[in-house]
């Protein structure tokens, strides 16, 4: 297995690790979004979805552990790359045309990623901890109300929406970047991948954003 870890420790290996974990997380987002959209099916439907997931708890726990591992690797490896890459240019340019030769999404991955991380901490506290660690409403299987309460706080919702914009930044670059890292780039089909990445990003961002917007502005006959 020496060769395997050697490979992952090379500059290209580290990128591949980012790409693999990134793709896992992107797939997770799709499932997460599908589940979340059941909120629009009403209180009953959402509570049932969550209850159903509860019935396969051991499986969910395994998935969550894998997800945790993927997150940790993605974050740890990302920060490590950022730090090492910074060291590769000890003296900065006085004038840098970086805004002209790159797009904003690609050069801000560490910052969009950091904001997503902070968001994730709050997000887990609000929902995962509440759902799993004995929130009174969760004990009565009234998960829907937890969501309602959280999003009717405008500060929380706006923080949520802003964070999702940064998630969009991260996905916009990450999607096509993963393909490039795997070497799946070709002058014929790469433009298609870039478009697909844009569509994926928009669907994810608009999909997730629709929830706080709905509960903040439209829920309860507002």
């Amino acid at each position: 297995m020496g060769w395997f870890f050697n490979a992952l420790n090379s500059s290209i290996g580290k990128k591949i690790l980012m790409a693999i974990t990134g793709i896992c997380l992107m797939l997770f987002l799709i499932i997460h979004l599908v589940n979340n959209l059941s909120l629009f099916g009403g209180e009953q439907m959402f509570n049932n979805v969550v209850k159903n997931l509860d019935t396969i708890k051991p499986f969910i726990r395994v998935i969550e552990l894998i997800l945790l591992l993927v997150f940790v690797i993605h974050i740890f490896n990302g920060v490590r790359l950022w730090y090492e890459n910074k060291k590769a240019r000890p003296i900065k340019y006085k004038i840098n045309a970086i805004s002209k030769n790159t797009n904003i999404f690609s050069r801000t991955m560490i910052w969009s990623g950091s904001i997503i991380f902070i968001f994730l901490v709050f997000h887990l506290r609000t929902f995962w901890i509440s759902f799993n660690l004995g929130h009174p409403l969760a004990l009565s299987h009234n998960y829907y109300q937890i969501v309602v309460l959280a999003f009717q706080d405008p500060v929380y919702s706006i923080f949520y929406i802003v964070a999702l914009i940064f998630l969009g930044f991260h996905l916009k670059h990450g999607f096509q970047s993963a393909f490039q890292t795997f070497g799946w780039n070709n002058k014929k089909y790469f433009p298609f991948i870039q478009k697909l990445g844009l569509i994926y990003t928009l669907v994810m961002v608009i999909g997730f954003m629709s929830i706080p917007i709905y509960f903040l502005f439209f829920y309860g006959g507002k």
């Binding site: 500059s11 790359l81 790159t102």
Partner: peptide
């Protein structure tokens, strides 16, 4: 070549395409 490149202190690729 990649091994040598890594030894020499170049950074990794972030696909910014600059």
């Amino acid at each position: 070549m990649v091994k040598k490149m890594d030894e020499l202190g170049f950074g990794a690729c972030s696909n910014t395409y600059a």
